[in-house]
Structure formats: structure tokens, C-alpha cells
């Protein structure tokens, strides 16, 4: 099955995978090096991936549903939803932190671990996983101090290594710059599907309200 994976929870990222059961071959992948160019680069990258693979359309689309900064996240979701609609192919959501968890499992952790990425405003998006990569708890958004005292994977851990060390959580070397990648996201999705697990809908995991405040004058107070 030809699978297009998209994740824009951090940098814009896309991958074209050929899957046979749990087996995954990467036909091509793209990751932007810039943080805020999602709307600009994602579509041309997907077009190039398909052209290079000589494919007109994939058989399914999977997309990272966050958590992640909202504006970039929506670019991936709007793209995936529209592509799947036009191509008339299956569409699945995957929690974006699962992509890093898949890479973490490859290091053979002995127990539970945490995946954390930057949530801005001095907070982290994070989730706790079992040693085999199954989600145990989350995702959440909070200060670093609220993470469990576990080995922590992901760029969010790199940002707050001292504060995490203070609560007994350690930053796993080699993972302190890790962002969710479409290759890992797609691989994780393919394995879940092969194992008969359900994937998510494409409902974004914002984890935060819009922050809009009702002005005093709207609450019935004049001036």
C-alpha cells in the first residue's frame, strides 16, 4: 500500500511509504529546515515526492494531529483532509508524539519513557509511553516540572534539560533536538494498522483554548 504521511506539528514534513503489513519502505521524504514555512513548502514537497515515485496518488493519507503550534498544525491537517477528499482515499490521524516514540523504542528502553516537544509559552507538549511504544498517558501541555521522572525524548526535553533533571527526568542523548517526522509518523501508523489497532480521526489536538477573552463591556459593564 502506498501511504502518504504528513506532519506539521513542528517543521513541515512529508513522506511517501510503501507498506506491506508491518513492513515499511521509505520511497521519499521531505522535512523543512525552517520552522514557519508550512503553508509555503508542504504542497510542492508532496508533489515532488509523488513525481519522484512515479505515482499519481497514494492509497491512504495519514496526518499528525498534534499537539503542536496551531497555525502550522492546521496547514498539515487542511492539506491532508483536502488531498484525501479529492483522491477519495482513506484518511487517518496519528498523535504526532507517536513519531518520536517510535524512534525512542528503537533504543530499547527498559521501562516507561516520556516524549516532549516545545509548546511555547514556557510549556511542553508531552506524553508518557510504555517501553514498547504504546501510549500510557497524554498528550498533555504543562510546565516541565509536571513531567514524570522518566527518560525523556524530544526537542522539548532539550529545551528544559536542567529543570527536568531537577525533578528526576533525564534528557536522552541524541534526542534533544528530535521533532516528529513524517517518516516515523507513517511507519507508526502502518504498524498500528497492521496490528489491527484503530488510528485517530483528524480532529486536531490543540490542548489549549483559543485564549480569547470576553471584553468587560460585553459582560454587561459599560466602559
Amino acid at each position: 500500500m502506498l501511504l502518504l504521511a504528513i506532519d506539521t506539528s513542528a517543521n513541515a514534513s512529508a513522506a511517501l511509504l510503501e507498506t506491506t503489513g508491518a513492513g515499511v519502505a521509505v520511497l521519499g521524504s521531505f522535512t523543512s529546515l525552517v520552522g514557519n514555512d508550512h503553508a509555503e513548502v508542504l504542497a510542492p514537497a508532496i508533489e515532488a515526492l509523488l513525481q519522484d515515485a512515479g505515482a499519481v496518488r497514494p492509497d491512504a493519507v495519514v496526518v499528525g494531529v498534534g499537539p503542536g503550534p496551531f497555525t502550522g498544525l492546521r496547514v498539515g491537517l487542511a492539506s491532508a483532509k483536502t488531498l484525501a477528499f479529492v483522491w477519495d482515499v482513506a484518511l487517518h490521524g496519528v498523535m504526532s508524539l507517536d513519531a518520536i516514540a517510535l524512534e525512542a523504542v528503537a533504543t530499547e528502553p527498559t521501562g516507561d519513557f516520556t516524549v516532549a516537544i516545545d509548546a511555547r509559552r514556557k510549556e511542553l507538549y508531552w506524553a508518557r509511553y510504555h517501553h514498547d511504544g504504546l501510549l500510557a498517558d497524554g498528550p498533555h501541555v504543562s510546565l516541565a516540572e509536571e513531567l514524570p521522572p522518566l527518560p525523556t525524548f524530544g526537542a522539548g526535553a532539550g529545551l528544559y534539560s536542567e529543570r527536568l533533571a531537577a525533578i528526576g527526568a533525564t534528557v536522552v542523548p541524541g534526542f534533544d533536538q528530535a521533532h516528529p517526522s513524517a517518516v516515523s509518523l507513517g511507519t507508526s501508523a502502518a504498524r498500528s494498522l497492521a496490528a489491527g489497532r484503530e488510528l485517530l480521526s483528524t480532529e486536531p489536538l490543540y490542548l489549549r483554548e483559543s485564549d480569547a477573552k470576553v471584553p468587560a463591556v460585553m459582560k454587561g459593564k459599560l466602559l
Binding site: H38, A39, A43, E47, R74, V75, T82
Partner: peptide, 18 residues
């Protein structure tokens, strides 16, 4: 800007897929 990006991402995908 954030609103424009949703329509633009969707439009690009529509153009790409068609």
C-alpha cells in the same frame, strides 16, 4: 495570516490532487 494559511493549504492541495 493564520486564517489565510488554512485556505491556501487547502487550495494548494486541491490544485496538486487535481
Amino acid at each position: 495570516s493564520g486564517a489565510l494559511m488554512v485556505g491556501v493549504a487547502a487550495a494548494k492541495s486541491l490544485a496538486l490532487a487535481t
